[in-house]
């Protein structure tokens, strides 16, 4: 708990213009859309990892985020798959429980304590993204 209180976490939302950040290219998901996440908003979470799941179809960061008064809120953050993450420098042991991280996430539209990772600042200062961007495939015309 000492570690959590020392994290001095900040949580704040910033509305961003979708077209500017998520234009032609999109982050990569293999098996569901981004619909449940608000890709126009970004939230900064500073806290302590409780677990890092290097799994398919997605990896997850579980993180405890204390507010300015020390009250802790737990968040589940979805990442791409290990394959996608490796293409942007992640390894299965890049982070571990107990590490303090700064995450920028796209929060869930439902308002629940969950989100989709945009970037993570690791304890050693490296900033890793949630996989490379993906160009949309060409679409056929209808009739």
């Amino acid at each position: 708990m000492k570690i959590l209180q020392a994290a001095r976490a900040k949580v704040h939302c910033a509305a961003l213009v979708a077209a500017g950040i998520f234009g032609a290219a999109s982050p990569v998901l293999a098996h569901h859309s981004f619909t449940m996440f608000d890709m126009t908003k970004r939230l900064t979470l500073v806290g302590t990892i409780t677990s890092f799941e290097w799994t398919n179809p997605h990896a997850y960061i579980e993180i405890d985020v204390p507010d300015d008064k020390g009250a802790v809120k737990h968040w589940s953050i979805e990442l791409g798959s290990p394959s996608i993450l490796m293409q942007s420098g992640w390894k299965f042991n890049s982070i571990k429980a107990g590490d303090k991280l700064t995450l920028i996430v796209n929060p869930m539209k439902s308002g629940q304590a969950g989100g989709f990772l945009s970037t993570a600042t690791l304890p050693d200062g490296r900033v890793l993204s949630n996989g490379p961007r993906q160009e949309p495939p060409p679409a056929p015309t209808q009739k």
């Binding site: 098996h31 398919n56 997605h58 737990h74 589940s76 290990p82 869930m108 304590a113 969950g114």
Partner: peptide
């Protein structure tokens, strides 16, 4: 490797895809 052993998405009774969130 890609073994789908941690699928947190599920489909609710209305046919909508939801995400299981953990509380710790």
């Amino acid at each position: 490797e890609f073994v789908c052993d941690n699928n947190r998405e599920y489909v609710d009774e209305k046919g909508v895809v939801r995400l299981k969130l953990h509380d710790k």
